[in-house]
């Protein structure tokens, strides 16, 4: 009798805790939307999204340069990060003996634990001057942000990719070898197709991290609200826009930052949703 009672109360307690976590999340989302959405309709969706003039004091709220900024910096980080992460994952999972893996993989995952301000600091002190001296421009630029972010998302993509490559049954490799495939043919014709959806999920999670990153990005992009003409231009991202101006924003200006948050939220939700579908498709195959 007593046992049954505690069983039930534990179940109830867990339910309450689980729901309060979800409720907190929901509240945040609802709050952001309630603060931001009316503003978007007041200014007009197309003026807000597609105008390039961001002068909050003058009542001009166009975030187009920031959307472009977020997208190009994210794209750049993918161009830097994906090839590194993929070749690293293939090398580590297929060519390195198991004992070495056991040391290398946790080390890589440790990279994810370095605070973003440290990455940003390195970007400002080392990378930006190098770019300024050798390639021109202000140094604090799309290029600098792409490289820094590319390295920051490396551990995420790398470690998920390694996991999904390792999850490919050994029998796939044997099957390919038994048909006369070379090691590389085995990897790209048998192993990679089997690990594909897991790798894609990893890339999308990395993408989410890149687009949401704020601190490092503020430090290395230069934060100019302009439409960039080359990777050496400064840009401002959506996240940086919120972080930079929230300290003194009031009234409409404050609402416009929440509206920026709504746009960011939508972009990230779409990304996560795609990632979930990619992961589910992988599970469904097994």
């Amino acid at each position: 009798m007593m046992k049954l009672f505690s069983e039930k109360s534990i179940k109830k307690a867990l339910t309450v805790i689980a729901f309060s976590a979800i409720a907190a999340l929901l509240l945040i989302v609802v709050f952001i939307i309630l603060e931001g959405l009316p503003f978007i309709f007041k200014v007009g969706i197309s003026d807000f999204l597609f105008s390039s003039e961001w002068e909050p004091q003058m009542g001009r709220f166009g975030i187009f340069p920031m959307i472009i900024g977020s997208l190009v910096v994210t794209l750049g980080s993918m161009i830097v990060g994906i090839p590194l992460a993929l070749s690293g994952a293939i090398f580590l999972s297929e060519f390195v003996p198991r004992w070495a893996m056991r040391i290398i993989k946790p080390t890589i995952e440790l990279l994810a634990g370095i605070p973003s301000v440290v990455y940003g600091f390195i970007g400002v002190m080392v990378l930006a001057p190098l770019i300024r001296d050798y390639l021109g421009g202000p140094g604090l630029s799309i290029l600098a942000a792409s490289i820094i972010l590319g390295i920051m998302i490396l551990p995420t993509i790398l470690s998920i990719s390694i996991d999904s490559l390792k999850a490919v049954p050994q029998s796939y490799r044997e099957g390919a070898f038994a048909l006369g495939a070379t090691h590389w043919q085995t990897i790209h014709m048998a192993v990679l197709p089997a690990a594909k959806s897991g790798i894609i999920a990893g890339i999308i999670l990395g993408l989410g991290r890149a687009i949401g990153e704020t601190m490092a990005v503020i430090m290395v992009t230069g934060n100019a609200v302009i439409l960039p003409k080359s990777p050496l231009y400064s840009v401002r991202t959506l996240t940086a826009n919120i972080a930079l101006e929230m300290g003194y924003a009031t009234g409409m200006h404050r609402q416009s930052l929440f509206a920026t948050g709504v746009i960011l939220l939508i972009i990230i939700m779409v990304l996560n949703y795609t990632a979930t579908i990619a992961i589910r498709r992988r599970v469904g195959k097994k």
């Binding site: 796939y172 048998a190 197709p193």
Partner: peptide
């Protein structure tokens, strides 16, 4: 070679 468990590719 044919293996113990069927191992078609993905």
């Amino acid at each position: 070679m044919v293996f113990q468990r069927p191992n078609p590719f993905a």
